[in-house]
């Protein structure tokens, strides 16, 4: 059974799956790199964005690949406002309090969704959901290929923002030396909020790309959070290219370990790699010096 006939499709599949993981991780790593907090609300925000994409399709009839251009900016605004007016204010700038506030936010978002829309599992039925490209030895699902391309586009956009814009330079300055940035007149609260907004927008993109093939219910986003943490660590906390490479790598590892160890035990492989990386090279495989 481990002939190339199955090995190569499994590898390809790992890359496609990993791309979506990378998108979720991009937002997380950005927020971590600048604010140095582990955002517990990440999964809940992903769920919220998936609901937004779901209703955009069901109520307004907008395809997720189009609604992403509305939902991503919308979630940027949501993220900005959350950081500026909730997380920043309630946490008084202390890491441990940010932790609790994001945790509280996760509880609020998840249960507001439950209260509003019940626990039903919802799926959308787009015409291209089952379109595939025949490679002869395997089929590649079109929506997954779109996701694969999108992760590079999003990473490129992030990279351009970071290197070419003023706010990007400010974000990098704050990430590197907060106090110094503050002294040189940078509005740190604003930079934090923009970063959180960008991270949340990444999650919104991931949500729109997931909806054609995945489902949403009030807990759906949580399935991606632990894996995203793993990718963030693997790629180096705060590193955008690291998150992309880490995501693809974890996707392949997951696919292969599922092939060799089975799906239940296969997940252990991911976390063992995670632990090993932390113990041996905590700055991540692709991270700069710690």
């Amino acid at each position: 059974m481990l002939s190339p006939v199955i090995l190569i499709p499994a590898l390809l599949n790992g890359l496609l799956t990993g791309a979506v993981y990378a998108l979720v991780a991009l937002g997380l790593t950005l927020i971590y790199g600048v604010l140095h907090i582990i955002n517990f609300a990440h999964g809940a925000l992903l769920t919220a964005a998936m609901f937004a994409a779901y209703f955009a399709f069901k109520v307004l009839g907008i395809d997720p690949y189009l609604s992403v251009f509305i939902i991503a900016p919308l979630f940027f605004a949501v993220g900005y406002a959350l950081q500026r007016f909730v997380i920043g204010l309630a946490s008084h700038g202390e890491d441990r309090n940010m932790l609790l506030v994001t945790l509280g936010l996760a509880v609020v978002i998840e249960n507001a969704l439950l209260f509003g829309f019940r626990g039903d599992t919802r799926t959308i039925d787009v015409p291209y959901a089952f379109q595939t490209i025949d490679l002869g030895f395997t089929y590649l699902a079109v929506p997954r290929l779109v996701g694969f391309v999108a992760v590079f586009v999003v990473a490129l956009i992030l990279w351009l923002i970071m290197s070419l814009t003023d706010i990007g330079r400010a974000i990098r300055a704050v990430a590197k030396e907060k106090l110094g940035a503050q002294l040189s007149g940078i509005d740190v609260a604003h930079v934090y909020a923009v970063t959180f907004g960008l991270g949340t927008a990444c999650v919104a993109v991931a949500a729109c790309l997931l909806m054609p093939t995945y489902y949403v219910n009030p807990g759906a986003g949580n399935a991606f959070v632990l894996i995203a943490f793993t990718i963030v660590v693997l790629g180096g906390m705060g590193s955008v290219p690291g998150a992309v490479l880490g995501g693809l790598m974890i996707g392949v590892v997951e696919s292969l370990s599922s092939l060799f160890l089975g799906d239940s035990l296969g997940q252990v492989g991911i976390f063992l790699i995670f632990i090993a990386v932390l113990l041996v090279r905590p700055q991540g495989l692709f991270g700069a010096n710690a």
Binding site: S3, L259, Q267
Partner: peptide, 23 residues
């Protein structure tokens, strides 16, 4: 032919389906 266990939630069934296809 084979018994495949998976956790709940499982995010991706492609590898499992590849196995089914191969067998």
């Amino acid at each position: 032919l084979e018994t495949i266990a998976h956790p709940t939630p499982t995010r991706d069934f492609n590898t499992i389906v590849l196995k089914i296809k191969a067998q």
